[in-house]
Lab assay of single mutants.
Amino acid sequence: ALNRGDKVRIKRTESYWYGDVGTVASVEKSGILYPVIVRFDRVNYNGFSGSASGVNTNNFAENELELVQAAA
C-alpha cells in the first residue's frame, strides 16, 4: 500500500501528469474510488508555472500509480 510522502509515477494515460512523478499527500481509507491524493511540482494547464492558480494535486487509484521511492 502507498503511504504519505511516497514518490509515485503516474500511469493513467489520459492524465496531464502521465509519466510524471508526484508525492503522495494523503491516502483516504473510506473506500472511495480514487483514494490517493498526489501532489506535483508543476501545475496543470489551469494555471501558469509559478502561479497559485493552477491545480497541482489530483486523486488517483492505487493501480494507476507506480512506487518510485518509499517515504523515509
Rank of each mutant, 00 (worst) to 15 (best):
N46C: 15
A52R: 03
T23R: 04
G54R: 04
A61T: 05
T23D: 03
V43Q: 05
D6F: 04
E14Y: 10
D6N: 03
G50V: 06
V38L: 00
Q69P: 07
K7M: 10
I37V: 13
G22Q: 02
N3W: 08
D20Y: 12
G19W: 05
S51W: 06
N46G: 09
V27R: 02
R42N: 07
K29N: 11
K11R: 10
G19Y: 04
F40W: 00
I10D: 03
L67R: 05
A72G: 14
S51C: 15
N44W: 15
N63C: 13
N63H: 14
K7P: 02
P35T: 13
R42V: 06
A72K: 12
A52K: 08
I10T: 03
S51P: 11
V43D: 07
A72N: 11
S30Q: 08
V24Y: 00
A70S: 12
G22H: 01
L2R: 01
S49R: 04
N46L: 07
W17A: 02
E66T: 06
R39P: 00
L65T: 12
E14P: 05
S15D: 06
V24F: 03
E62S: 08
Y18A: 04
I32V: 10
G22I: 03
L67S: 02
G50F: 07
G19S: 03
F48P: 15
A61H: 08
N46W: 08
E64L: 15
I37Q: 11
T57F: 14
V43L: 08
E28H: 08
L65A: 02
N3Y: 13
T57D: 05
V21K: 01
V27C: 04
D20Q: 07
G31T: 12
L33I: 07
V8R: 00
N58P: 03
G22D: 02
A52I: 08
A61S: 10
I32G: 14
D41G: 06
Y45H: 15
S49Q: 11
P35Q: 13
R42S: 05
N63Y: 14
V36F: 12
N63L: 06
E66D: 07
I32Q: 13
R39I: 12
R42G: 05
Y34R: 13
N56V: 06
E14R: 08
E62Q: 09
G19D: 08
N59I: 05
V43W: 15
L65Y: 01
V8Q: 00
T23E: 12
S49D: 15
F48C: 15
S30N: 10
Q69M: 12
R4T: 10
G54M: 05
L67E: 01
G22T: 02
A52G: 10
S53V: 13
V43P: 14
K29W: 10
A1V: 13
K11V: 06
A70Q: 10
D20N: 06
N59E: 06
K29G: 12
R9C: 11
R42K: 11
F40L: 02
Y45W: 10
A61M: 10
F40K: 00
L33M: 10
S53G: 11
L67H: 02
V43C: 15
V68L: 09
W17M: 02
V43Y: 15
A1P: 12
K11T: 10
G47D: 15
N3F: 12
G47E: 15
R4Y: 10
F48N: 14
F48E: 15
W17E: 00
I37F: 07
R9M: 08
S30K: 11
V43I: 12
I32E: 13
G19H: 04
V43R: 05
N58R: 06
E62A: 12
N58E: 15
T23W: 08
N58W: 15
S53M: 11
K11Y: 05
D6V: 04
V38R: 00
L2A: 04
T13Q: 13
V8C: 07
A71L: 07
L65P: 01
V68D: 01
E64Q: 03
K29M: 10
G50I: 06
S53D: 13
R39L: 14
T57N: 05
T13D: 04
K7D: 02
Y34S: 04
Q69L: 09
S15Y: 02
R42W: 06
V36P: 00
S51D: 12
K11F: 05
E28C: 14
E66K: 03
A71N: 08
S15L: 07
S26E: 11
Q69N: 09
V68I: 10
L33T: 09
L33Q: 11
E66G: 02
L65F: 02
G47H: 11
N63W: 14
N44D: 14
N3V: 11
S26K: 13
F48M: 14
A25T: 11
G31N: 14
L2V: 06
V8N: 00
L2D: 00
P35Y: 14
T23M: 07
G50T: 08
V38M: 00
S26P: 01
K29E: 11
G31L: 13
G47T: 09
F48A: 15
F60V: 01
G50K: 03
G5V: 03
S51F: 08
Y18C: 05
A25Q: 15
G54H: 06
G31Y: 13
N3Q: 13
E28A: 12
S53C: 15
G5C: 11
S15A: 01
A70M: 10
T13V: 14
S49T: 13
A70I: 08
T57K: 06
A72T: 14
V55L: 07
E66C: 06
G5E: 01
N44I: 09
K7A: 05
Y16S: 05
V55E: 09
A52Q: 13
E66N: 01
A71T: 08
L67M: 05
Y34C: 09
P35N: 14
G5R: 03
L2M: 05
E62R: 14
S51K: 03
F48D: 15
I32N: 13
A1L: 13
N58C: 15
A71I: 09
W17C: 04
E64V: 03
V21S: 01
Y45C: 15
V27S: 02
N56D: 12
W17L: 01
R12F: 03
Y16N: 04
E14K: 07
R12I: 05
E28R: 10
E62H: 14
Y18V: 03
V68S: 01
Y18I: 02
